[in-house]
């Protein structure tokens, strides 16, 4: 019984819009939220077995105390300074 108003038949286009378009839109939004952050900061990540063609870098700790600015170019100074023998050396090696 339909006292309030007249019911009209649903067209095929409306059916497709509701039952295919709606879920598709939801899926697209979720996929975008998932993929977008990874695409934004894409960086060549190290994978074992890849050749390593970066220039060698040598990091050293900051000197003691609140002194600043001296650590940046010290690599060259350290390299040009003479070698100091350090007695018997210890250590370990690992491969992967």
């Amino acid at each position: 019984m339909c006292g309030a108003g007249k019911l009209s038949a649903v067209t095929v286009a409306e059916t497709i819009l509701v039952f295919a378009g709606g879920p598709l839109a939801v899926i697209l939004v979720l996929a975008l939220l998932t993929i977008a952050p990874g695409v934004r900061n894409r960086r060549p990540r190290y994978k074992p077995g890849q050749p390593w063609d970066h220039a060698p870098v040598w990091y050293e700790p900051h000197p003691d105390g609140p002194a600043h600015g001296g650590a940046h170019g010290d690599g060259h100074a350290a390299i040009t300074a003479g070698a100091t023998p350090a007695g018997p050396l210890g250590g370990a090696r690992g491969t992967w």
Partner: peptide, 22 residues
């Protein structure tokens, strides 16, 4: 660390080696 050769070496000086055994 040499990622191209897949080798990592740790070298300790003589005083450090006493506190950091091999």
């Amino acid at each position: 660390v040499s990622p191209g050769q897949r080798v990592v070496e740790v070298v300790t000086g003589s005083a450090a080696a006493r506190r950091l055994p091999d």
